[in-house]
Every structure is written in C-alpha cells, then in structure tokens.
C-alpha cells in the first residue's frame, strides 16, 4: 500500500505515467479503478434487475408464458459462446503475462470473434421477435406489439403465444420490454467491449503489452468478464423460468 513505494525508484518504464511513483502503484490504481467502475455497472444493471424481480413477482403467469416463447436453444448457444469468449479473454491476459505475444494476439482475435458471434445470434433472435410482432410499445414505429394468441383446439403454432390462466397479453408485453431493455443494454456493453478490444489489438500488434506492462489488457478483461456475468444471470431469468410449463 501507500508505504511500500516511498523510496524505491525502479528504472522508468515507458508505460509509467508521470504522476505515479512506480509500476506497482500504477497497476494497483488501474485495477482498483476498474473494480470501482464495475460496482457502478452492477448498480446500473441492478435497477433493471429490480424491475424484473418486481414484475415477475407480480405477474408470474404472464412472465412464464412470455419466457416460454423465447428460443431456449439460441439462448443456450449464446451462453456457451460467451463463456468461450471469457475463456479466451482470460488466456489473452495469461499470454500477455508470460510474454507470448503471438498467442496473445490470437486469443484476443478469438475473443472478438466469439463476441461478434454472440451479437449475430442475438440479432437473429431479435428478428424472430420482430416477425412475431413481439416488439413492445412503439419501439419500432408502425410495428406495434401485436402477437397472435394460440386458440384452443387448433394445432400448436410456435409463432403464437400460449396463454395460461392468469396471463395477459398486456403483461407479456411488459416482460418483452424488460427483455429488450436488459438484453439491449447488455448488447450495448458488448459493442463497447469490442471497440475497446479493437484498440487493444492495435497496440498489441505493435508490441506495446508484455509481462512488465499490461494494465489495459487486464482491466479490459475484467470488464469483459463482467459482461459475461450479466449474461449468466440473464439466461436463466429470461429464458428458463417458464420452461417447465411445457409447449415452446
């Protein structure tokens, strides 16, 4: 902590900013800074999780019906994709720490590919919801929330809502707004993360990061893992909660 850097003056590294005494202090500050930033992110998403919890508690049937209508396979595949990207991100940090620059770049690129794949699958899902008229409110002008409802005795149609007693179309719409708000905000964070990685890639190719200096890679990794964690919660809360009532 503060006492440890009083006297030592190591050879100045080009990555050391002038107002820090040494690399250790700089690394500690940047890691702490990112964790504090992640606290703000937790509170930011926390507001939406609170809204989710409240309405799931108020309208359990509608939420089960609406959740059942999401595509569990696409959701599960996306979870796996995101876990893969977290894994390769962890390996990017590792390879930087041990000074394997080629591998570092390789894993960084892989992480980005997984990230883009995730967004692609997400886009496919959004398109499906668009086709089924499940975009809430006037989010898309001229395309209001207007799903068709499965009627009794007709052959099951996976494009139709299977309402159970207690569920209403109005509250299904509320679920879909929360769904789009949360996954949309999550996707926005992914896009920002990919932008950051583009910058990291630019400097990695130039050999800026190595065992001595890799704060940017490390803290970007923290951010990326955090985005992964948000999804780890979104997947069960949004996709799985009504699965047990059957008929997808």
């Amino acid at each position: 902590m503060a006492e440890s850097y009083a006297t030592e003056h190591e050879v100045s590294h080009p990555g050391l900013q002038h107002h820090f005494e040494n690399m250790d202090q700089q690394r500690e500050a940047s890691a702490l800074g990112m964790w504090v930033f992640l606290v703000t992110e937790i509170m930011f998403f926390g507001g939406m999780f609170l809204a989710y919890t409240l309405y799931r508690w108020k309208y359990p049937e509608s939420f089960e019906v609406a959740s059942n209508h999401l595509d569990i396979w696409l959701g599960a595949v996306n979870t796996v994709v995101l876990i893969c990207s977290s894994f390769t991100m962890a390996l990017t940090v590792y390879c930087t720490q041990i000074g394997r620059q080629q591998l570092q770049i390789l894993f960084l690129v892989l992480t980005m590919i997984f990230g883009v794949t995730f967004l692609g699958i997400k886009a496919v899902e959004y398109k499906q919801k668009y086709d089924d008229n499940l975009i809430p409110g006037r989010l898309i002008p001229g395309h209001p929330f207007n799903p068709s409802v499965q009627e009794e005795g007709k052959p099951a149609d996976k494009h139709k809502l299977h309402l159970i007693p207690g569920a209403t179309v109005r509250n299904v719409e509320l679920f879909y707004w929360i769904y789009f708000a949360m996954t949309g905000m999550h996707a926005l964070h992914m896009i920002i993360g990919l932008g950051i990685m583009l910058v990291l890639l630019f400097f990695s190719v130039r050999g800026r990061y190595g065992p001595e200096y890799h704060n940017p890679i490390e803290i970007s990794g923290l951010y990326w893992h955090f985005v992964d964690i948000v999804w780890i919660f979104l997947f069960p809360l949004l996709y799985l909660l009504g699965r047990h009532i059957g008929h997808g």
């Binding site: 569990i72 599960a76 979870t79 796996v80 977290s86 799985l240 047990h244 009532i245």
Partner: peptide, 15 residues
Amino acid sequence: LLVGTVLTAWVAFFD
C-alpha cells in the same frame, strides 16, 4: 462453466 450451462438448461424442463 459449460457443465453449469448444460445443467441449468436441462433442469429447467422439470417442474
């Protein structure tokens, strides 16, 4: 993490 994902998706089908 992969095992956890498969597990959570699988048990979701039980009531």
